[in-house]
Design a protein around this nucleic acid. Structure first.
Lengths: 194, 194
DNA sequence: GGATAAACTAAACAATGATTCACGTGAACA
DNA sequence: TGTTCACGTGAATCATTGTTTAGTTTATCC
């Protein structure tokens, strides 16, 4: 009774999403055309519309999928790390590594801050990430490892700094710096201990 | 002999640049049309081409002007500050304040990383800024105020963190944090002094 | 006033965009 | 084998784009 064609649609859908990520990251939302995406995916223009309502839908699906993945992966990894300093380092290096690996995604995200449909998913993502950091900082303070501070404020700042690290890493790949140094600065600051 | 029309062109050029900044920041480079810019500037479409060769020229002029201004302003302000910690704080708060005041510019900059003509001016800008920070860090180390570290590496990291602060500030105006806290984290880190 | 040139306009141009639709294709089931 | 339908095509549609151009207004100079 179930009717599944051998030319499985799911495969095409995946091919489209992969191709679209590449094209969007190279040209931005407006700069990427459905023709280009279709070409990159090896499918016809009309074919795109079998799987996505329109350009906006394609873009939104792409963003949502990837961000949800990363959020899940983050929680997973941090689950059994107890030391807050180590958790912080791990969080930072995770995000940096993910960004390096999924360069395209970061470019897409960075490029279209104004497109409203992307914004909601992005906000949710950063909110999630912020909460994770906040929890780490809270633990750090109560355990005496971290200096006393407003954990929510500091969490915000760290998230933002991290965002800058990653953006720069992507935009200027030659101006590289290690994620160890990033962690180090955030943990120790730059003032000499007196 | 000098022939200057009362309908002075310079005024129109300024009006266009102001309007273009707004429109570009709202819609991005591709998303902004010459029609929209003309409308916002209260001028005809053809009028734009009296002052700018084309869309790319208009965009490029806009970026270059603003970035050069900020670089100059930065050097000016830091000239007579001796204490490296104070210089660092001042630098950070300057950039944050500038970003808050010229929200549109930051949005424009953040939006089109891929447009090559904008990129060159931007790279130069960040390079300039990096050198300023590097100098501050170097002074801090030799004077014993800062812990010993690779000044060029740390300068890069601080620039990137700052970029993140500013980007976040612009994208999510509600998730505000003080520039005092930013300086604080960079200067002191988060680990407790032992 | 008449001439000149800068400042400006509006319509037109060719190119390109997203989206639609009438039409093929081939695997699965009867 | 023939019917069905998911899958796929690409020319056509229509809006919008950047840019050009022919023509109009307006301030200055003789």
């Amino acid at each position: 009774m179930i009717h599944v064609n051998k030319r499985s649609g799911m495969e095409s859908k995946k091919k489209i999403l992969v191709a679209a990520t590449k094209v969007f990251s190279d040209y931005g939302y407006k700069g990427a055309s459905m023709r280009m995406i279709a070409g990159a995916a090896g499918i016809s223009i009309g074919g795109l519309y079998l799987y996505f309502k329109n350009k906006e839908d394609l873009y939104g699906t792409l963003i949502r999928n990837r961000l949800d993945d990363l959020t899940e992966e983050t929680r997973e990894t941090l689950r059994d790390i107890q030391d807050p300093a180590e958790a912080m380092s791990t969080f930072i290096s995770m995000r940096v590594k993910y960004a390096r690996k999924h360069r395209e995604l970061i470019l897409v995200l960075g490029k279209e801050q104004a497109i409203t449909f992307g914004l909601k998913a992005k906000r949710k993502f950063f909110e999630d990430q912020r909460r994770v950091i906040e929890e780490i900082v809270r633990k750090g303070i109560t355990s005496g490892r971290f200096r006393s501070c407003d954990e929510s404020e500091v969490a915000k700042i760290i998230i933002c700094a991290l965002r800058g690290f990653i953006l720069s890493m992507i935009v200027e790949p030659d101006a590289l710096f290690s994620h160890e140094e990033c962690s180090n600065l955030i943990l120790k600051g730059i003032l000499a201990k007196k």
